[in-house]
Simulated scan of single mutants.
Amino acid sequence: MATSIFINLPVKNLNASVAFFTQLGFSFNAEYTNEQGTCMIISDTISVMLLVESFFQTFTGKPLVNAHQANEAILCLSTDSRAEVDRIANAAVAAGGKPVPQQSQNEMEFMYDRNFQDLDGHLWNILYMDLNLAQQTARPEVATQ
């Protein structure tokens, strides 16, 4: 059986978050949806549980991070093309997200990525890797160290 991952994210406004991610092309599992949260489908083995902050808080005694003010994690999703990276990143900004400028330019020719913040400030990285080009530019001496 393939391992699945369920990422739990607190959100202030569930309906606004669903509308935002719907505009990015994601769908939701109605079986795992109520007024406290929903299950956003990323792939067959990856889901993101968008949970209203008060409900999310019942799972931990730790305070929630304000993702607009502090980093908690960067959620990276791979795509099949550079065009899909651009489609998702552009859709995120059009839906009310904020672009996140690259802090350093990616020096690997085989990688292309863009970043954005969702409505709650969570950081997302959308990535395309050209695996054929990656193999051509691999540095075997680094892998053996």
Rank of each mutant, 00 (worst) to 15 (best):
M1E: 10
S4A: 11
I7F: 12
N8G: 06
L9N: 01
K12V: 00
N15S: 14
A19H: 09
L24W: 07
A30I: 04
E31Y: 05
N34V: 00
N34C: 03
G37D: 08
I42C: 12
S43N: 09
E53I: 01
S54K: 15
S54P: 06
F56S: 03
T58S: 11
F59E: 08
P63W: 06
A67N: 11
Q69G: 00
Q69N: 11
Q69E: 15
N71K: 10
N71P: 13
A73G: 00
L75I: 14
L75K: 01
L75W: 10
C76L: 01
L77A: 01
S78C: 06
D80Y: 02
D80A: 12
S81A: 03
R82K: 15
A83K: 13
V85D: 00
V85G: 06
R87T: 07
I88A: 10
A91Q: 07
V93H: 02
V93W: 01
A95S: 02
A95H: 12
A95V: 12
G96M: 10
G96T: 07
V100P: 05
Q105C: 01
N106E: 10
M108W: 03
Y112E: 02
D113K: 04
N115G: 01
N115C: 01
D120K: 08
G121N: 08
H122P: 06
W124M: 06
I126G: 06
I126S: 02
I126H: 05
L131T: 14
N132A: 13
L133P: 03
Q136N: 02
A138Q: 14
E141H: 03
